[in-house]
Design a protein around this nucleic acid. Structure first.
Length: 493
RNA sequence: GGGCCUCUAGCUCAGUCGGUAGAGCAAGGGACUUUUAAUCCCUGGGUCGUGGGUUCGAGCCCCACGGGGCCCA
């Protein structure tokens, strides 16, 4: 075994790089406070898109980026620098331009993954690659750990656990971040155009409410009380509506202690909006506009192109179908709000559909999902839900037994929901009492009686339309990716 | 909550019938002034998730636990 081999025998890659850091510190800095950049890699790429090979622009530039390729030859070294937006430029470090010492240092001290500053003339190589003919370079930040190999996909676990590496290595990860930012910013712009203001309502709540879901529990020492992380902001936003805030929305996190899957994350970003003197039809109009504007902002078109190349069209006016008639048509069996529970039970048994919460409306919803959901190709509002699964929604103005609620289905999952809000405090109390009975039977997702909210309703909620939309799911629609990819840092144990 | 799959080098993965550990990239030494996953020569790197069991012998078979994924409820 040679001396060199013996030396590396016990030395991990990190140890080697720690040694290089030490050498950098001895002759200067390994983590300087700044480097004199004059421009960005992206703007150089934009300004010099297609130069002939062997062009000398005569322009000098200083840029910094992460070293993502390194090819050291005898007297001429090549490094590809990548900036945060993914744009790259080649640095050419030649003996003629930097001299013996600097070239030797470059070979000895620069590793894949380092943050590197280079300055020199902007040229193209003989192969036509846009490059900096380096006459000055310095380490902008020494990397101690090696970058993952750039030629195979990161495993899903590594992607999620080390998203910073994912962002360096995978363009789709960067695209997702920007698509999300653009979509959320577009939602806020659409609301602003329509005269809505953004509120922030409590995340820590003394009582679970606003949705049917199992909450996370926590506690306050100072208040000496149990608390819930919110499962929905609805009851607070409606209190605000009672107070006269007529056009409001909130974009914030909800938390639900449920099994995660491709469309469910324990913490997820939610949009809710309420508009006085609107109703569920008006909120459907608003929702369509919100989604279409987001598609334009994130991808430039209502004809979305997903990351995998699939096309998905969210343009035009979306269909509005009614739950009971669409179910009757698809199943060939007449099903109405009057259909007895026994018939619904017999039907689901025959089809071997499991119904988790055995109330009449749940059977109808499960049957609807069985028969109709898969047949929807375009974004579709499914209107007029059973009353007993929708405790916060007002009865339909003309059809008995259903409520003025829609779910928006896009690409097989529920993207949004909208209501004509229940404003009658007496009926709202009855609905809460029914829910409390379910809770007493052990249903952890059932709503609880919220006396403070009922008191607010007794002061008079104007006729109001409301809608809610999952932001992560909106990004799934805009990108075609799994919910965990839409969230920068999803929960991992 | 139930079922199935998975965990091997820094990263991504192979590993046959149970016989003592492999590749590519990355890393160390050397050569190279136009490379594009550079090339060429040489070299090092492993508690095979953890703990138990079976066996002369376990990465491989069995059990438990843990991480991750998929499907179902």
């Amino acid at each position: 075994m040679t001396d060199a081999a013996e030396a590396t025998d016990t030395v991990e890659q990190r140890e080697v790089r720690l040694g290089k850091r030490q050498r950098l510190l001895e002759q200067g800095e390994a983590y300087p406070v700044g480097v004199p950049v004059t421009t960005t890699i992206g703007s150089l790429r934009e300004r010099f898109p297609e130069l002939e090979p062997d062009t000398r622009t005569g322009e000098r530039a200083g840029v910094a980026g992460r070293v993502v390729h390194l090819r050291n030859t005898g007297k001429l070294c090549f490094a590809a620098l990548q900036s945060g937006d993914g744009s790259r430029i080649q640095a050419m470090v030649a003996l003629d331009s930097v001299g013996d010492t600097s070239l030797a240092d470059f070979k000895a001290l620069v590793d894949l993954g380092d943050q590197l500053f280079v300055a020199g003339d902007v040229i193209t190589s003989r192969r036509g690659e846009l490059s900096i003919q380096v006459d000055e370079w310095r380490i902008a930040a020494k990397a101690l750990l090696p970058l993952p190999n750039l030629h195979s996909e990161l495993s899903e676990e590594t992607r999620v656990r080390s998203r910073y590496l994912d962002l360096i290595v995978r363009p789709e990860a960067r695209r997702m971040v920007h698509a999300r930012a653009a979509a959320v910013s577009s939602l806020r712009a659409t609301f602003a155009r329509r005269g809505f203001i953004e509120l922030e309502t409590p995340m820590l709540q003394t009582q679970q409410g606003g949705a049917s879901a199992r909450p996370f529990r926590t506690a306050s020492r100072a208040y000496d009380t149990d608390l819930f992380l919110r499962i929905a902001p609805e009851l607070f936003l409606k209190r605000a509506a009672v107070g006269g805030l007529e056009r409001i929305f909130e974009i914030n996190r909800n938390f639900r202690d449920e099994n995660p899957d491709a469309t469910h994350s324990p913490e997820f970003a939610m949009l809710e909006a309420y508009e006085a003197y609107s109703d569920y039809q008006g909120m459907a109009d608003l929702t369509q506009e919100l989604v279409q504007q987001s598609a334009l902002a994130a991808g430039g078109s209502e004809q979305i192109e997903w990351f995998d190349g699939t096309r998905f069209d969210v343009g035009g006016t979306w269909d509005r179908i009614s739950m009971y008639p669409s179910l009757s048509e698809a199943s060939g069996i007449e099903i109405t709000p009057e259909t007895p529970l026994s018939e619904l039970v017999a039907l689901t048994d025959r089809l071997e559909i499991e119904v988790p919460h055995p109330i009449r409306g749940k059977y109808v919803e499960e049957l609807w999902e069985h028969f109709v959901k898969k047949t929807l190709e375009r974004p579709t509002f499914v209107m007029d839900f059973p009353v007993d699964t929708s405790p916060l929604v007002r009865d339909h103005r003309s059809i008995p037994g259903v409520v003025e609620k829609w779910d928006l289905y896009v690409h097989g999952f529920e993207l949004a929901t909208g209501y004509s809000e229940l404003a009658d405090p007496v009926i709202q109390r009855q609905r809460f009492v029914e829910q409390a009975a379910l809770a007493a039977q052990g249903d952890p997702e059932a709503m609880r009686i919220d006396e403070d909210f009922l008191r607010a309703l007794e002061f008079g909620l104007p006729p109001t339309g409301g809608m809610g939309m999952g932001i992560d799911r909106l990004l799934m629609v805009l990108t075609g990716e799994n919910i965990r990819e839409t969230i920068l840092f999803p929960l991992v144990k």
